[in-house]
Measured scan of single mutants.
Amino acid sequence: EEDDHMEFCRVCKDGGELLCCDACPSSYHLHCLNPPLPEIPNGEWLCPRCTCP
């Protein structure tokens, strides 16, 4: 299965362990989110761009 998510964080543009949005190709480091997440959430996760009205 091919993964179309970005291979770098949308905020800092660095690679590493990234959290991928379930609705778009964006990826983020947990510490780059505002507010930062302490751990990878269970289940579906939507990035700030997808949850913003």
Score class of each variant (00 low, 15 high):
P38A: 15
C32N: 04
W45Q: 03
R49S: 12
T51A: 09
V11F: 08
R10E: 10
H31S: 09
L30Q: 12
D14I: 03
C52N: 15
C47T: 03
C20P: 15
K13V: 05
D4C: 15
M6H: 05
C20W: 10
K13Y: 04
P38L: 15
L19A: 12
C20T: 14
C32Q: 01
Y28R: 03
L37D: 13
R10K: 06
C50K: 02
F8D: 08
G43D: 06
C9P: 00
C9T: 03
N34H: 05
R49E: 15
L46Y: 08
P35R: 05
E1N: 15
P25T: 13
D14H: 10
E44T: 12
P38G: 08
P41C: 08
K13N: 13
P35Y: 03
C24R: 04
H29R: 01
C12Q: 00
D4I: 15
G16Q: 02
P35K: 06
N34I: 08
F8A: 11
C20H: 09
C21N: 00
C12I: 02
L18W: 00
C21A: 01
H29S: 01
E2Q: 06
P36K: 14
L46A: 10
N42H: 10
E7C: 14
D22I: 10
N42P: 15
E7H: 05
R49Y: 09
N34C: 09
P35G: 07
H29A: 00
E2G: 08
C21R: 00
H29M: 00
L19P: 00
E44K: 14
N34G: 07
C50N: 02
E39Y: 04
C47M: 00
R10T: 12
C9R: 02
E17V: 06
L37F: 06
D22C: 10
C9Y: 00
H31W: 04
N34A: 11
G43V: 11
A23G: 11
P36V: 13
E39W: 02
L33N: 00
N34P: 03
H5D: 07
P48S: 11
S27C: 10
L30E: 07
S26M: 08
W45R: 03
M6G: 09
Y28D: 04
S26D: 12
P25E: 13
G15E: 06
K13G: 11
W45I: 02
P38E: 02
E7F: 06
E17I: 08
L33E: 03
H29K: 00
C9I: 00
P25W: 09
V11P: 01
G43I: 04
C52P: 14
L37E: 10
N42Q: 06
S27N: 12
C24F: 00
D3A: 12
P53T: 09
A23D: 09
E1A: 03
F8I: 04
I40L: 15
